[in-house]
Amino acid sequence: MSLDPRDLELVRATQEGLPLVERPFLAVASRLGWSEAEVLARLRALLERRAVRRIALVPDHFRLGYVANGMCVFDVDDARVSELGRQVGSLPFVSHCYRRPRVLPEWPYNLFAMVHGRDRSEVLARLPEILAVLGDACHGHDVLWSRRILKKTGLRLREPRGSQSCFA
């Protein structure tokens, strides 16, 4: 699926954040030289097509005190990982849940679930709930704690280089 140039322009204009004014979409529209109605209609269409996941207030969890970030990883039977991954992903305390490839022998885990907490014990207290969902389909697990954030900017579309638009 590709975005047309106007969609790209709009995503770039809104991803860094909407201005905190009474009519933020009008402010974006004036910057782009569009109408407010077009901004809203295109954003709605992008959301419907799931090109934009959400328009939201994005909290900084780390600054809010959620300083423990445990990347919980599991080695789950390939035949059951899709079904079980969906169940793990629906647990309220899991913020991201993905299936990724194993790279043997270095990396035996194919299911990733991110759990945030105010401290490590809060994250570890959640682990049995995930393991209970996975049951005997899980052959091993680990929790990788973050020690340091070296960079965190979120997915951003960059300004086009020449006529090429670039996503970074």
């Binding site: 909407l18 905190l20 934009v52 939201a56 994005v58 909290p59 900084d60 979120g154």
Partner: peptide, 20 residues
């Protein structure tokens, strides 16, 4: 600094490609 922004969150792989 408690909210990083109010804005659009783009879907990975819908626009471009990414990996861990």
């Amino acid at each position: 600094g408690l909210i990083s922004r109010v804005g659009a969150v783009v879907e990975p792989h819908r626009v471009g490609y990414s990996t861990l």
